[in-house]
Write a protein that binds this DNA or RNA. Structure first.
Ligand SMILES: [Mn+2]
Ligand SMILES: [Mn+2]
Ligand SMILES: [Mn+2]
Ligand SMILES: [Mn+2]
Lengths: 240, 240
DNA sequence: TATAAATGTTAGGCGTGCCTAATATATCCG
DNA sequence: CGGATATATTAGGCACGCCTAACATTTATA
């Protein structure tokens, strides 16, 4: 079995797709299809010939071998599955769906593509009483897109995956939190770490001065007074 | 704004993730994290320094600049969003989800990731009456995995995206179909195309000899007699 | 058939990203 | 302090995948 680079997979896939036209496939066709120049195509074809995936007679046209057909078809199948999922399930426009699919097809695992195919099948075959969820999702998308005045809700990915981490200077007095990350300038970071403010430890906000500067916190029984800039460099997650 | 290669994005992301430990980030850490040797790390760091995304003093440790922090965080955010979708929605095991996410994060578009985040949020917030669909999907997966005796149903991707194309020699007499693709050996392909069997045309199966060889078909009013090997090279899609 | 146009190939170069081997610096510890 | 050890850097090389320029071959056309 051969393992092809992303680039070579694209060449094989291109030959497959161009073959669908029912015309002979030539160097120029591939170059245009993939937006590369002819010498690049010729170089790639040499490799594919050496691997036994295509036949190519000098100055002639190109054909996939039996092994090459299988390989190209597997790439193309991934492409179609991903594109269909993006377009029909997620509601992404066709051009973006195709572009993303053709990039992802080379690095996604077989098992994940298969699971996505299962998802598509499920969405298509789930009984009607349970089915409105997909329509509901598309409504949800439409409403979000309409209400989002360009930029608002830009951090949806973060909201969706975060453990709701915020900076230590935002914690009100009396509350506890766990340190997630210590950022900030080198000197500040060093000082904070030296004081025992390291990821995983629990901190309790003891007192906050009027302007939020300084703040008193308790770490492992020790009282510490932090400047606002220091507290602002500590990412914490409120527990509870 | 900088556009980084997949490799450089991984270096930036690695620095971010290693920063989460709360310890200083060093060349060795990055090398181990990304499974590359130190000289590779040093080379990459030089590029990131030149782009103003990190600071790195000789023989010292490494820090993301403000711009670098934004960039790394965006990569990491994609990673987390994709991994969460794969694991929690599709039910893929954590290791595979993480591996695929860290490959895809570099080539998927922002808009697609955002739409995936919307899907996650939707799945988490959709009212309970509409909600059983996700649980139903997970049941569907479990049943499929259990019933699939290793290999059966391997073509789910194909089933899900295909237009149900089959070979011409499988069409019963009297039925019509559309040509989707002409494959096969060069000489066979050439002959078929010359006879007018090209993608898009309608063919009607006229008569099938006892062993399926030869078959008579009608293409654009012309009667043709095809050997089984020839008919087997024509991919068609039954219409209706 | 002769010439022009289109297409394909070769040669050579460049950027990226990885490696190994050798060397330089920092850190640890007796 | 001084050597042993850990870590970082440089130098040099290789595979890949793209490019341009120059040249070869095929195909179209007069
Ligand atoms: Mn592709
Ligand atoms: Mn593709
Ligand atoms: Mn990655
Ligand atoms: Mn990642």
């Amino acid at each position: 079995m051969h393992t092809l680079s992303a680039s070579l997979e694209d060449y094989a896939e291109a030959i497959w797709i161009l073959g669908l036209r029912g015309r002979v496939v030539r160097v120029k066709d591939i170059g245009e299809f993939l937006s590369v120049k002819s010498p690049s195509v010729v170089g790639a074809l040499k490799v594919l010939v050496a691997k036994g995936l295509i036949t190519h007679e000098r100055y002639g046209y190109i054909e996939l071998s039996q092994e090459g057909e299988v390989l190209a078809w597997e790439v193309y199948r991934k492409h179609k599955t991903l594109a269909k999922f993006f377009n029909e399930i997620l509601g992404i426009d066709l051009a973006t769906a195709a572009r993303d699919a053709c990039a992802i097809e080379h690095c996604v695992s077989d098992s994940t593509v298969k699971r996505i195919a299962m998802f598509i099948r499920f969405a298509e075959t789930v009984p009607d009483e349970q089915a409105p969820w997909l329509a509901a999702f598309h409504d949800y998308v439409r409403e979000s897109v309409e209400s989002n005045q360009e930029g608002a809700g830009d951090d949806l990915c973060e909201a969706v995956t975060s453990e709701a981490a915020i900076m230590l200077d935002m914690i009100p007095a009396g509350r506890e939190a766990n340190v997630v990350r210590v950022a900030g300038r080198k000197d500040i970071k060093r000082r904070l770490l030296d004081m025992g403010i390291i990821p995983g430890v629990k901190v309790r906000m003891e007192r906050v001065a009027p302007a939020g500067d300084p703040v008193d916190v308790v770490v492992k029984g020790h009282h510490l007074s932090l400047r606002k800039a220091e507290a602002g460099a500590v990412m914490v997650e409120e527990n509870g």
